[in-house]
């Protein structure tokens, strides 16, 4: 139920935005992420964007194993 998917913001109109995920565009409520801008990535749950995706952090997560090797 707590399923959420990443999407890219295409356009914003007040508290609504059009967000695109895997080629599908859909209206998304952005009341919970008022700081969002066009081209930001957000995570969408049941029609609401609930958080911005931090691209750098996404890359760092993937780099977790790099740290591991350095540690060894």
């Amino acid at each position: 139920m707590c399923l959420a998917v990443p999407a890219r913001i295409i356009s914003i109109n007040k508290n609504l935005a059009i967000a695109e995920s895997l080629g599908v565009s859909r209206e998304v409520d952005i009341s919970l992420v008022p700081e969002v801008k066009k081209d930001d990535y957000v995570i969408v749950h049941a029609g609401f964007a609930i958080q911005l995706v931090d691209k750098n952090e996404a890359l760092i997560t993937r780099g977790y194993w790099k740290d591991y090797f350095d540690e060894k």
């Binding site: 919970l32 958080q51 952090e57 996404a58 760092i60 997560t61």
Partner: peptide, 18 residues
Amino acid sequence: IQYSSVVRESGNPGALKI
């Protein structure tokens, strides 16, 4: 936090407030 691309230590303060 492993899911650091979207999870922040303080969560979503605006959501918590509402």
